[in-house]
């Protein structure tokens, strides 16, 4: 089932600065999507449109079968969560527990039920020991995990990560990506749209969308998208290491079987 249908979406901040042109795609329930593209390609604006933060768009955004408009905004928003780039600027509460509670308060969850929900999602994101901590005592990665816990506590069907790992150190980045994969295993119905610069993350996704200058250039499985290395190079994007290496080897006349899909398999094949 498609949980999101975007049809002919265009958006411009003003007459001279058009950001999105005629973007159409759909998201299927339970899949992990990665949206890659250069700075200024319109990725974040697209996320803002999906969250209803930019309302003056043209075209249709249909989420969970409902068109995104003023009337449906609250019910749609309560089913989408978003994790932004800057860990500090989305930490609303004064402690970890308060921040996870923020969304619950907005959804008018009764107070008696909050504590167990907070404990549950703090444990799932590995923040159970930090419930009383203030944001200034947490690392960037920990703050992002709190943001994820806060989003999960609201029980969303779709989570958007808007470059959620780009301000983190490599360790924090890896932890967040591992957490996302773990969440997917636990909630098969959860759809994830990750906006990212990290092509290695995109290689692990179910589907990859490539954006350039406000349009969707390619959409497909990672192996399809990243095999088109020349098309990616034309818009100054690189493919994950495995695809780059495979292309370079093929260029030098090697024959690599179709069933080799990871760097490890390739290494084994080459050593044989």
């Amino acid at each position: 089932m498609n949980i999101a249908e975007i049809r002919h979406l265009s958006f411009a901040y003003n007459e001279t600065k058009s950001v999105l042109h005629d973007v159409s795609f759909s998201l299927e329930e339970g899949k992990y999507y990665c949206l890659v593209g250069h700075n200024g390609s319109g990725k974040s604006t697209l996320a803002k449109c999906l969250m209803g933060l930019q309302s003056e768009f043209e075209g249709d955004i249909i989420l969970f079968g409902l068109p995104l408009d003023r009337k449906n905004l609250f019910s749609i928003r309560s089913r989408i969560g978003i994790v932004f780039q800057n860990p500090d600027n989305q930490f609303v509460g004064s402690t970890v527990a308060d921040d996870i509670a923020f969304g619950l308060e907005n959804k008018r969850i009764p107070r008696e039920k909050m504590q167990s929900i907070i404990d549950d999602f703090a444990a799932k994101t590995g923040m159970a020991e930090y419930l009383d901590r203030e944001p200034s005592m947490l690392s960037g990665g920990q703050k992002q995990r709190v943001a994820i816990a806060g989003v999960l506590a609201m029980g969303p069907d779709l989570i958007i990560f808007d470059e959620a790992t780009s301000m983190l150190d490599p360790k924090g980045k890896k932890e967040i990506i591992d957490l996302v994969h773990q969440l997917r295993k636990e909630n098969p119905g959860l759809t994830i749209l990750s906006i990212t610069h990290d092509v290695e993350e995109a290689a692990r996704a179910d589907e990859v969308l490539v954006m350039n200058k406000g349009s969707i250039l390619m959409q497909g499985k990672p192996e399809e998208v990243f095999s088109r290395i020349d098309d990616l190079k034309a818009i100054h994007l690189s493919a994950p290491f495995f695809y780059e290496l495979r292309a370079a080897l093929i260029e030098r006349g090697l024959k690599i079987p179709e069933d080799i899909k990871t760097a490890e398999q390739l290494e084994e094949y080459l050593c044989r």
Partner: peptide
Amino acid sequence: EELANAMECRCYD
């Protein structure tokens, strides 16, 4: 501005 967006996305009204 970013904080306001984040709050709005978490259904704050």
